[in-house]
Simulated scan of single mutants.
Amino acid sequence: MTRDPHDETYPSQAVVLAGGQGSRLRPYTDDRPKPMVEIPGTGMPIIGHQLAWLAAEGVTDAVVSCGHLAEVLQEWLACTELPLRVSTVIENEPLGRGGGLKYAAASLPRPDEPWYATNGDIWTRFSLREFAAFHAERDATATLALARPRIPWGAVETDEFGHVLDFIESPPSPYLINAGVYVFSAEFAGLLPDRGDHERTTFPRLARERRLAGFPLPQGAYWRAIDTAKDLTEAAKELGGGD
């Protein structure tokens, strides 16, 4: 858990937002929170893979924000040999995404240093160090990872006369989306609302001030949001049952 002594660019702490109910993943989430759902064949819940990834990228401390069936997640954390230090917080009342993020950030061990945050239902692998360097180079207050997911339907390519030229199965989206992974400068926590959604308040404000950056995931980087049973099946297929 040692840090690179000559570099403050790379955060060593993170918040994992793991409080969602995961209603679209039922029945898997009937008895466990969404991040505790296992991707078939991997032998580990989603959050286990996330914590391993964070640790491999230099994170030594993580704060997990719990909500739905928090005790199941807390028990797993207590009984599992983890590659980094993990603490948990529980919202006593709904604070919204921005308020929840601010509440969890208050428990970070080094409030004067930058930090990562990730949604608890994201399955991805890319270099967080490159991500943090991108953030620092732009002197951003917040930087979003941006993904280009595949469209779940087949696309039809036509010419200017309306002739069908080709059928393309599940092409990449022409638009980048918020990938649910972030790097924040230390001052970002103070800009979050006590209640409400930071994507409707803090992020638009930072964008107007040119203090919000977007980091496109490198070509070939794996990314998937685990929202439905189909996502679990597809992730297992794509990963070949391994990490």
Rank of each mutant, 00 (worst) to 15 (best):
G43P: 10
I46S: 06
I47H: 09
G48I: 11
T60G: 15
G43Y: 14
L51T: 03
E38D: 03
G43T: 11
A56Q: 13
T60D: 13
P35C: 05
L51K: 04
I46A: 12
A55W: 11
A56D: 14
V64C: 07
V63E: 04
A56R: 13
E57S: 14
I46T: 13
V64K: 06
P45K: 02
T42G: 14
P35G: 04
T60I: 02
A55N: 11
I39W: 05
P40V: 07
Q50G: 00
E57K: 02
E38T: 13
L51C: 01
A52F: 04
T42E: 15
H49V: 01
M36G: 08
G48A: 07
A56G: 15
V37M: 01
P45D: 02
A56I: 00
A62S: 04
W53P: 10
V59H: 09
G41C: 08
G58L: 13
G58W: 06
G43E: 13
E38Q: 08
E57L: 02
D61E: 09
P45G: 05
V64Y: 06
I39S: 10
P45C: 06
G41S: 12
T60F: 07
A55Y: 11
H49W: 13
M36P: 05
E57R: 06
H49F: 08
T60M: 01
I47N: 02
G58A: 12
W53T: 14
I46C: 03
P35Q: 12
P35E: 08
V59A: 01
M44N: 14
V64P: 10
A56V: 07
I47D: 11
T42H: 14
I39E: 08
V64R: 13
G41H: 12
A56N: 08
T60A: 15
A52P: 05
E38P: 12
P45R: 03
H49E: 02
P35L: 07
E38F: 06
V59Y: 11
D61V: 12
A55P: 03
L54E: 02
A56M: 10
A55G: 01
A55Q: 00
L54T: 12
I47V: 02
P45A: 08
M36Q: 09
M36H: 07
Q50S: 13
A56W: 01
A62W: 06
M44H: 14
M36L: 08
G41I: 09
M36W: 03
E38R: 04
G48L: 08
M44A: 15
V63R: 10
V37Q: 03
L54F: 14
I39T: 00
A55L: 11
V59F: 02
I39Y: 00
P35Y: 04
G41Y: 04
A52L: 12
T60P: 04
I46L: 05
I39P: 04
E57F: 05
P40Y: 08
A62F: 09
I47W: 14
E57A: 12
V63S: 05
A62P: 07
I46K: 10
G58P: 01
L51P: 13
